[in-house]
Design a protein around this nucleic acid. Structure first.
Lengths: 222, 222
DNA sequence: AGGGTTTACTTTACGGTGTTAGGTGAACGC
DNA sequence: GCGTTCACCTAACACCGTAAAGTAAACCCT
């Protein structure tokens, strides 16, 4: 029953150590995510995260530099998840139609993951892309959701599918992105505010997708 | 030189007391606003606000219930300022053109008062309209900026100026509002993020106004 | 087999936060 | 002149994120 027989040469049980380390690291992330989502990031304390996995508060600091780093790592995951949702759209020939699908997928992601969406796109100071996002390959459409949108916009621009006042793919991408972001962001922030009679956001955002494309497309030549 | 000669009967110098009270109250608000704008609301402490007007931290609590109440009162002011900016547009016959002007005024307000805009429309939990906004007359277009937009949308809808898929004035108002909010909100939150090549937001938002109106208007009958 | 090192975690504590309770002293009505 | 009101202060509490130092088990190596 002596161990080293079935372990491949390099580092006998050091692998287990590392595996366990990653495991508790993951448990911390999981607890943090749950509490962040449930109570908001500002309202959840390091002590609460630690208590949930039966650790001492300072133990967390052996795995993450500080609270922001914890949040940043969660954000990278969510950001990659968004890019993955875009990836799942698949190859669609017409770039305009592809942009429409991107918009729908974006809105669904936002409304299905409201808290994560808040961390990603509604919170100042770059938890995202600051340092924590060094693992995301910027400008790689498979990992960078904005690059994915921008690439489709650029393609449509090159094919002359948009009105001539639009030349800068970044500007146009931002008009489209912003047009949808505003609807979901307002809804997330003010949904429990009886001041306004909120329309159902998913339907509203889908209408907005059409509005934005109709408002930017070049008129049919026929 | 005995006072009560020129003071109208009720309460001789009690008036001065109240006036002084309101004065320090206003000084607290002013200091809080400056620090909130300069450093963000989370990063400014009650102690810092108090120090700026040479008071003890706890003195603030004689004028405001807590930090949130302070923020809420600032928000009401800003919200009324936005409604005032809309009011200054004046009477414009064509409701679509009026909506266009509203959009431009909105974007200008947001970009000229980024921090206040954050408190108003990008921060969850109702500092706005929760309790602190009981002084704003909801649904009165002179005080409620959303009501102002909604009224113009409703008028245009009644005149048949929008496409037929738009029936609910709230939904349409929210598409237009959200379309602009998203652009300024994204820019405010991520402007110091080299991840994205941000287009100049004022020009972009103005383009977006045209996009949104073109995308929602009924096609010219001619 | 055992000594030294690494390391996952704990104990303790520091400086800072928003906020409360109780005191002080001047301005007030009578 | 006396009692009251009230704007403000002093002191303190509970809690926060986090740094420093200790502990004990698991590891590597001879």
């Amino acid at each position: 029953m002596t161990a080293p027989l079935d372990t491949p040469m390099p580092t006998p049980s050091l692998l287990r150590r590392e595996r366990q380390r990653e495991e508790t690291r993951a448990r911390i992330l999981e607890a943090a995510r749950e509490l962040f989502v449930a109570n908001g990031v500002a309202a959840t304390t390091m002590r609460a995260i630690a208590a949930r996995i039966e650790y001492t508060p300072t133990a967390i600091y052996h795995h993450f530099r500080d609270k922001d780093a914890l949040l940043a790592e969660l954000c990278t995951n969510d950001f990659l998840a968004l890019a993955g949702a875009f990836q799942r759209i698949g190859r669609i020939e017409d770039p305009i139609e592809r942009i429409r699908r991107i918009g729908i997928a974006y809105v669904d992601f936002a409304l299905d993951n409201k808290s994560q969406y808040q961390f990603l796109f509604m919170t100042p100071s770059s938890h995202v892309h600051g340092d924590g996002m060094k693992y995301v390959e910027k400008n790689n459409p498979e990992q960078d959701a904005y690059a994915f949108l921008r690439a489709s916009v650029e393609e449509a621009l090159k094919r002359g599918l948009f009105r001539t006042e639009f030349q800068d793919p970044d500007q146009l991408a931002q008009i489209l992105w912003g047009g949808l972001h505003g609807i979901v962001a307002l809804h997330i922030v003010k949904e429990h505010d009886d001041w306004i009679a909120w329309a159902e956001p998913r339907a509203t955002a889908r209408l907005a997708v059409d509005v934005l494309l109709r408002g930017t497309r070049r008129a049919e030549p026929a």
